[in-house]
């Protein structure tokens, strides 16, 4: 059912949600930006609807709720191992359509790519989604071209319009909560963008020969291998393991898994001192082709959802979408050389 709620009513519904769930949304961390006197929009727990940032795009995605940046898996002593407790409460996540599509990618990677990941699964089972409407695409969005601009996979959808909230409640559990706090019913359809400023065209005929193209060389000198593009990406899923021995008692410690980046040094280090993809262009090639070629071959659809966060965040102004648009040129080059 569809409803209209004012801010007070929305907060009442939110308070009820918060009894059973931790509610996460993009929010503004004031002065939390990289540069002084700048803010950072990223995910965090919200306590009132005013905490939700509806206007600006979040620099980081929702994925840190499903796959924490750093997650302790278990603790160990000399003779025992103790599994780290999971959060008892479930989660409700406010996110946009592109990010809802990213959840499908995370699910495929963590649940269907071999045995299901235990730690992901135990969080994922208790997560619900509220999709936020988009009235306009941001500068670097290209969701429409990646066909992630619309979704119906949500528990509820919300549009913020002229200070009131339109809710489309698809699942009974949330419908039951929301209708308690408003008498105003309305047919609501979540707003989705159909046009973006940035466009991406991935050549239909693309194969691994493109890895031999010279287009990648450009990035050897431009990329500073900081990994920001991976960390803000809602579909990057790589992690590494760390065994920590507590400094006060070196016989006790914990194992944790921590986000890893295919752009950062150390990602390809192997036992014996080997290291691969030393050049930044090679790392860019690996990342781009994983998102749009390798992943597609295995799953039948592109991994990239076109949120454009990687383009927003790159301090060297390297554009992932621009790179994708160069693939055609890259294919022509290698076909010609063949």
């Amino acid at each position: 059912m569809g409803y209209v709620l004012n801010e007070d009513q929305m907060n009442q519904a939110l308070q009820e949600l918060k009894k059973s769930y931790i509610v996460y949304a993009p929010k503004c961390f004031e002065n939390g930006g990289r540069f002084s006197d700048t803010d950072c929009i990223r995910y965090g727990e919200i306590h009132s609807i005013a905490d939700v940032e509806f206007e600006k795009k979040s620099e980081f995605s929702f994925k840190e709720i499903l796959t924490p940046v750093s997650q302790t898996l278990f603790y160990f002593t000399e003779d025992s191992v103790q599994e780290a407790q999971a959060e008892k409460k479930g989660a409700v996540i406010f996110l946009r359509s592109c990010d809802r599509h990213a959840v499908r990618r995370l699910d495929d990677m963590y649940l269907s790519n071999g045995p299901a990941d235990y730690y992901y699964q135990r969080v994922r089972e208790k997560v619900h989604f509220i999709v936020m409407g988009c009235t306009n695409a941001y500068e670097n969005c290209f969701c429409a071209d990646m066909e992630t601009n619309q979704t119906s996979a949500y528990d509820a959808g919300v549009n913020k319009k002229n200070g009131v909230f339109e809710m489309d409640c698809k699942e009974t559990w949330i419908d039951d909560i929301v209708k308690k706090y408003t008498d105003t019913e309305k047919d609501v359809s979540v707003e989705f963008v159909t046009q973006t400023q940035t466009h991406v065209q991935i050549p239909e005929k693309i194969d691994y020969r493109v890895s031999k193209s010279s287009i990648w060389k450009d990035y050897d000198s431009r990329c500073i291998h900081c990994g920001r593009c991976n960390f803000v990406c809602p579909t990057c899923t790589c992690f590494t393991m760390q065994d920590i021995f507590y400094t006060d008692n070196g016989k006790v410690g914990e194992r944790r898994r921590v986000w890893a980046s295919c752009m950062v040094d150390g990602y390809t280090d192997v036992a014996g001192g080997g290291s691969y993809r030393k050049k930044m262009g090679e790392r860019m090639r690996f990342k781009v082709l994983h998102k749009i070629l390798d992943y597609k071959e295995r799953n039948g659809y592109y991994m990239c959802v076109g949120c454009g966060r990687c383009d927003d965040v790159c301090p060297e102004y390297i554009s992932f979408s621009h790179c994708m648009n160069r693939l055609e040129e890259g294919m022509k080059e290698v076909e010609h050389n063949d």
Partner: peptide
């Protein structure tokens, strides 16, 4: 100097609220 904040790719380092 804030070099750590500028270098951090994941906002693990941030600036103090006070200057």
């Amino acid at each position: 100097c804030g070099e750590c904040v500028l270098a951090c790719p994941n906002m693990a380092w941030t600036r103090s609220q006070k200057k």
